[in-house]
Design a protein around this nucleic acid. Structure first.
Length: 249
DNA sequence: CGCCAGGTGGGAT
DNA sequence: ATCCCACATGGC
């Protein structure tokens, strides 16, 4: 398994090159920063509390939504001057919801932003060397395992692997995990849960945040280019995909 | 038009 | 534990 995980990383890195996540709006205008796509040319290393909180808000806003929609919402928030937890906490719910309209689920996400604003405004800190505990993040309404790990990895450089829908789909098509259960299919065996899929990567890779950062970003890029819901197998760099080898390809 | 997009919480079984 | 569903916009 370790071999397959390492090999996949090499294939994706070779095909797409370093991704340099997390995309940070405050880097716009810097040398090498490309606002046109997902390639930002350098690791988004947040140096300020505002940068780290933008990642926190971005992780909420992109939940089950296109990043472009979340990005537009982040821009509205920044232009409205909502950049730190105190700004979000003092903003009325209705105004907050209108600002983030483009991200979808705006009522739920407005509440979630207020919850994380309370967390990072009181209990947790946005100081660079003081990452919150995972349990602390998970206890916050609106933060599930993926959002928690995204915050830990991209805002605080804690070496954890982020498992998302793209990761599941890719591993499923590679035959590493079982396909997601569909309606009507009999339950043959349970699918792996979040923590179990995460463990596949944690056990196979050196615990460096740069590696987990790059790997997750590469999976997202690969899923956008090739491993879509409706896959584009032509030119796919993943050599061991059973989906392509099956009747579909 | 229908499908898809970097999930999560709450309620029923 | 594990399903099932609401939540919602914007791009193609």
């Amino acid at each position: 398994m370790k071999q397959r995980v390492e090999s996949l990383y090499a294939q994706l890195l070779s095909a797409y090159g370093p991704q340099g996540w997390w995309p940070l709006s405050s880097r716009a205008g810097e040398r090498g920063y490309d606002t046109r796509g997902y390639h930002h040319g350098a690791y988004g290393q947040p140096r300020t509390s505002e940068g780290r909180f933008e990642i926190v808000m971005g992780a909420i806003l992109t939940q089950n939504s296109a990043w472009t929609n979340a990005e537009a919402a982040l821009r509205r928030l920044r232009e409205a001057g909502l950049r730190l937890p105190a700004d979000v906490r003092s903003c009325p719910h209705g105004r907050l919801a209108r600002l983030i309209r483009s991200s979808g689920y705006f009522n739920q996400k407005a509440r979630k932003l207020k919850e994380v604003a309370a967390l990072f405004g009181m209990a947790a800190s946005l100081a660079p060397a003081t990452a919150p505990r995972r349990e602390e993040l998970l206890s916050c309404w609106g933060i599930g395992p993926e959002t928690a790990d995204s915050i830990l990895l991209y805002a605080f450089h804690v070496p954890v692997f982020v498992v998302d829908a793209y990761t599941r789909r890719l591993l499923s098509r590679m035959g590493i995990i079982k396909a997601a259960k569909r309606r009507g299919t009999p339950r043959i065996q349970e699918r792996l849960g979040y923590d179990e899929i995460q463990r596949i990567f944690l056990d196979a890779l050196p615990p460096r945040h740069q590696v987990f950062n790059e790997y997750h970003a590469l999976i997202v890029e690969h899923a956008k280019r090739h491993c879509r819901a409706k896959p584009i197998c032509r030119g796919c760099p993943v050599r061991v995909c059973q989906y392509r080898d099956s009747a579909h390809g």
